[in-house]
């Protein structure tokens, strides 16, 4: 399964780290591809303010997410009323599944696509607000443990992906993008690196497709493995944060295990995201040397700041305010619940932006490299986390 390619097809002309609602209209209308990647011309709401254009899709996100919550509650209530022991399937999975059904059957209506694209915005809002549930000391302690694991994971992921990519004779820049995507934070890292190493759109599409396909699979596989190994919430969350590449999928895979595991997955993944600038800078310098253009990156500090995920700062600030005792217990509960609602929209967006039929169009060799590489990385990080579990005890 892959996320629909609308983001990829517009990569050359947009800042993909900016929500679609804030982008300038790009390209000629007939060249804009829809979220299904079908190439059909999409109706464009000319004249409507950006915030109006995102309303239908945001409502769709909320409806799908809320349907997932209702499904969980209804099944639980039915089981209790009829004294049945039904499996407790979390709203997270329902929201993703409902989104998948919509996306892969009737498709996301064109009028809703800009709003659906805001799922990443809601993810980041949710992460910042989640800071209220972490004391700064815990962030430092767990962040340090995570950072050590992240450093090892970065080395392993880059080595594994590079070796596999060369074995399968993938283009060098595609290997770089797959390495960056699997070592740091999936789509954001690939998009950030694409410009830095001047990779082709096609290579970026392949790399994003492979990373997101595996992210979708991880939603179903990781919780099963976590339960099979009887992992603690903290250890599982750390593992997911290290091994699942895209932040939305990592958050969902963590929440599918437990609420606490979801929090730790976000913390570990956020730590990993914070390294994005260093890895992209390394690859940018490498490709600048390969192209023999001398110094390809002028001001390295400015480059690192530009690539640094700023929402991490928001997360740390909110955590610091909570640690300072600024919030009452009721306010903490309110902010934590707002974070959950933001994540609910994110989980719906994960399903709505995932299209099974796109898989065949992306080619199999990058996917094979992605699958084998991610499996190796998942096993190595699992061993690493089980070894690091002592740090939590």
């Amino acid at each position: 399964m892959v996320t629909q390619m609308s983001t990829v097809t517009t990569l050359p002309v947009i800042d993909a780290r900016r929500p679609s609602t804030l982008r300038e209209p790009q390209g000629r209308p007939e060249h804009r591809r829809g979220a299904t990647g079908s190439g059909r011309p999409q109706p464009v709401e000319r004249g409507a303010p950006p915030w109006v254009q995102i309303v239908p899709g945001t409502i769709l996100l909320a409806a799908v997410g809320f349907a997932g919550k209702i499904a969980e509650q209804s099944i639980g209530a039915y089981g209790r009323a009829h004294q049945l022991t039904l499996p407790n399937i979390e709203y997270v999975l329902w929201a993703i599944v409902f989104g998948l059904i919509v996306s892969n059957t009737v498709g996301v209506p064109a009028v809703c696509r800009k709003g659906v694209d805001t799922y990443e915005f809601w993810l980041k809002v949710g992460i910042v607000l989640l800071g209220v549930r972490f004391l700064l000391g815990d962030v430092v302690k767990l962040g340090t443990v995570s950072l050590v694991c992240v450093a090892l994971e970065l080395a392993v992921a880059i080595l594994v992906m590079t070796a596999l990519g060369r074995a399968f004779r993938l283009p060098p820049k595609l290997i770089s993008l797959l390495s960056i995507g699997s070592s740091i934070c999936g789509v954001s890292a690939i998009i950030a690196a694409k410009g830095a190493i001047e990779a082709d759109d096609e290579d970026a599409s392949y790399a994003i497709a492979a990373i997101l396909a595996l992210g979708a699979v991880s939603l179903f596989v990781f919780p099963v493995i976590g339960h099979a190994f009887a992992m603690s919430d903290q250890a599982y969350g750390l593992w997911v944060g290290l091994a699942v590449d895209n932040t939305a999928e990592a958050t969902a895979a963590g929440a599918l295990f437990s609420d606490t595991a979801g929090r730790f997955a976000v913390l570990a993944k956020t730590t990993r995201n914070a390294t994005i600038g260093f890895v992209v800078l390394g690859y940018a310098l490498h490709w600048a040397r390969v192209r023999a253009r001398g110094a390809g990156v002028g001001n390295k500090a400015a480059f690192l700041w530009e690539k640094f995920p700023k929402f991490v700062l928001g997360f740390v600030i909110v955590s610091a305010l909570a640690t300072a005792g600024l919030f009452t217990r009721g306010e903490v509960a309110d902010l934590a619940n707002l974070s959950r609602w933001a994540f609910l929209l994110t989980f719906a967006g994960v399903g709505l932006r995932t299209n099974v039929s796109e898989l065949a169009r992306q080619g199999w060799r990058p996917l094979i490299v992605g699958v084998v590489g991610e499996c190796v990385i998942a096993v190595i990080t699992l061993v690493m986390v089980l070894a690091a579990a002592r740090a939590f005890s």
Binding site: L22, K310, F327
Partner: peptide
């Protein structure tokens, strides 16, 4: 000046904190 997605998320979350802290928004259900 254009804000990136990350900064918009920080601004939105900051607004939520202000609204909750000021009591304008309270008792958020889940």
């Amino acid at each position: 000046m254009r804000l990136s997605l990350d900064w918009w998320a920080v601004v939105a979350a900051g607004l939520a904190v202000v609204l909750v802290k000021s009591g304008i928004v309270s008792r958020i259900p889940w």
